[in-house]
Design a protein around this nucleic acid. Sequence first.
DNA 1: CTACATGCAAATCCTTTGCATCCAC
DNA 2: GTGGATGCAAAGGATTTGCATGTAG
Lengths: 144, 144
Amino acid sequence: MISVEEIVNRLREQGERLTLQRRMVLDVLCQEGDHLSVHHVQQQLAEQGRDLTETTIYRVLQWLKERGIVSQTDLGQSGVVYQVIGLRLHHHLICLNCHQEIELDDQVMEALRALLRRDYHFEPRMDHMAFFGLCQVCQDYHSE
Amino acid sequence: MISVEEIVNRLREQGERLTLQRRMVLDVLCQEGDHLSVHHVQQQLAEQGRDLTETTIYRVLQWLKERGIVSQTDLGQSGVVYQVIGLRLHHHLICLNCHQEIELDDQVMEALRALLRRDYHFEPRMDHMAFFGLCQVCQDYHSE
DNA sequence: CTACATGCAAATCCTTTGCATCCAC
DNA sequence: GTGGATGCAAAGGATTTGCATGTAG
């Protein structure tokens, strides 16, 4: 489990500047955990009476992403979402037809990761992927 | 190898309406093959003295995508590109740091495709993927 | 003939930028 | 004190929409 304290300490050790706004965004990310959009982060904070500009949220999330703290995922119709890396590691299968989102265990990525490391000397950052295709129901329907 | 004729015939058999504009977009996609953006398609056509509105290009590409004729890929910094599926099948590794793009043989996707089909009854449409991470040079640099 | 596709202009959505002010270290 | 972060307003870019007109089947 990952806590805000843990992340803050890690960043401080790296000599990063910890502002109130950065802590606020991290708070929400750790509380909510899943699939937070920029707008969603702002809403959550507003409900707690803590206001942040969208601009700042974009900048903080970008900053966290560059430091490997959060992942950024484009879920297609559901937009772009952010998530603390390591907090409930998983991925998604998204149906192009009915837009159903199926959750995918991280384990399925291991073989591909290993292959990319070994054969391409590439260090993948596949922390929250979205794969598109057709779910079983829509496959059957399409082939009728 | 896939030709415009072949695609047009396939669509006609499905009862799709074949307009001049749709043929024009298909022409460019089959001629150029690789990584065509909406803007790029428009430019290519303009050079041949054949003008199309961006709106129409968006609509045609969307239409082709829904019918499984073209793939749509977000390459990150390099934007969104389209490509005829089956025409030089490949994928990309993209460095988050230096933005280098490494080409990836389609073969590496087979195991994951098989797993998604078998364990999730999901028919993946992974025809032109982009995976992000760090290339060897940037890994070494980052760890200094 | 008719339903569907296109062109144009305008709207919309998401994200970034410039610049003055503020604050963490 | 000072460099970097924030807030605000405005710009930017990509994509979508409404509606009149055109055209494939």
